[in-house]
Design a protein around this nucleic acid. Structure first.
Lengths: 281, 281
DNA sequence: ACTGTGCTAGAACACCGTTCGAGTTCTGAA
DNA sequence: TTCAGAACTCGAACGGTGTTCTAGCACAGT
């Protein structure tokens, strides 16, 4: 019970301790280095064990390397513990001292990227809807830029410190705009689900049985398939083949975003003027 | 170019051919069986090669077994080519004659389940909104019953025959209700994305670093974590901890569903009475 | 009776996440 | 300064994954 509640403070304390320790170690290493330069070792002595690695293994360094790996490669599959170990000049097993799991590593990567990429404006009640839209658009930009984030995010309740800060900020904006509590809470979830799923479905994860292909190619193929469908059986799909597979992503995104915001705004105004059950009128 | 456009007809032809072939083989087998029963073989002869398997390996039989496996186990991980082979009394390699890929297998499973589980009503223009809601609720029911479907569906453009029929039906309902073309096309996508992502996020895929856990447990833990947060830094999350983690799923689902439908309805009425640019007024 | 096609079995390949034990290095107290 | 214990690294190994390949069997058509 108290175990899992401790982890942020535990992590903070551990981080402080680790930082101090590392500074001391760095000083010691500098001294040793100097000595070694002054008095050469016999050449048959083995080279220092950690030949290739510059930075020592740290939680942060591991997350750094993971992000580097993901940015370089394509898709979440680019990140494996083995490759990550290689990137850091060590084996996969060594990582498990600093990170419980691959799952936990992904948690950390996710939170790191939220913190770096998703700053939040202070709530300005008058234009809260515009603010929310801006936030969602910004999020979608990030998700299109780094599609793997959608893959990490999609089944993950955001509980890291940066994610919490972000959630807190969005909640503040919604409530400042007059959205009642329940709807504000649901709204945050709805928004994040929306832009994550949107990015995932249109960009990240378009699976197809025939190997690698860019999303546009897949959609183009589907478009051709829709066009070739027998019109008497699939009149609507045939008619709307273009709209189904080709529509401008920004417009499409905006369509759903508007709907969500309209829903939130309706809840806000219903709360402001609660006359006679506005529902099921 | 013509390669990939052929696949539906190719599949259809292949299916017909295979069916005919199989019928013939079945007849032959029956005859052989009869002969064998009449004239007993010497007991030292080896048993027929395919000892354990009753049904011959077929695309359909494979999909059957895959669904069986997924229903029995929990999560998409329950389905591996090895286990599937075992279920069918053979090795994993044999499956690849009938199925190009695991990806393709999942395509087939997905489409099979759509066909079985998602019948569609004929469009009744007067109550199109109600119809759409019913469809979405039905879909969510199915997704909650078989959570792995969400996992399969989430990055997959539905192009199988049953999926097409479903899409066609929903499009028909929307257009019959007066929703203009673009919005109808986007609406189908929006709806499927919504209920799939909703099911996935609340039921299927809640990942957590600490091993297996039911969704409710995870949410309960998060709830405790939110309650323990410093109130001066996270006032909104602390206030809304309940709403963020505990809300009744049906109500929550309805909230987003209403928003989507309101958006579609707005598009429909705007198209019906197109006075003076209803947007950005 | 023979040949070629359809299909299967099973080993093998190259990965994957994770665990474990032995070994090293470092820290802090005696 | 010494020394026990903690912190950390390393490498091999385990049991799993999707997929490919080759040899071979069973059967249909000639």
């Amino acid at each position: 019970m108290s175990e899992e509640m401790q982890w942020p403070t535990r992590a903070a304390k551990a981080a402080a301790k680790r930082a101090a320790r590392e500074a001391a170690r760095e000083a010691a290493r500098a001294l040793r280095e100097e000595v070694r330069r002054a008095v050469p070792e016999p050449p048959w002595w083995s080279a220092p064990r950690r030949g290739g690695r510059q930075a020592p293994l740290t939680r942060d360094a591991i997350v750094d390397a993971a992000v580097r790996l993901l940015d370089r490669g394509e898709g979440l599959d680019s990140l494996s513990m083995r490759r990550l170990g290689e990137e850091l000049g060590t084996g996969p097993g060594s990582l498990y001292w600093h990170v419980r799991n691959k799952e936990e590593l992904l948690d950390l990567v996710f939170d790191r990227l939220i913190g770096e990429q998703l700053p939040l404006p202070a709530p300005k009640p008058a234009r809260w809807q515009q603010q929310v839209k801006d936030i969602a658009r910004r999020a979608l930009d990030v998700l299109f830029e780094r599609p793997y984030i959608a893959e990490i995010s999609i089944g993950r309740f955001p509980v890291g410190p940066n994610a919490l800060e972000w959630t807190e900020g969005v909640l503040a904006i919604l409530r400042a705009g007059g959205v009642p509590d329940r709807e504000a809470a649901w709204g945050v979830h709805l928004l994040t689900t929306y832009f994550t799923a949107f990015a995932f479905e249109t960009q990240t994860g378009l699976k197809t049985p025939e190997g690698e292909a860019r999303p546009e190619e897949i959609l183009e193929r589907i478009h051709a398939h829709f066009h070739a469908l027998p019109r008497e059986r699939f009149p609507n799909i045939a008619d709307l083949a273009d709209e189904l597979t080709r529509g401008d992503m920004d417009e499409r995104f905006e369509f759903g975003l508007d709907a969500i915001l309209a829903g939130l705004a309706a809840a806000a105004s219903a709360a402001r003027a609660p006359r006679k059950r506005p529902r099921r009128g």
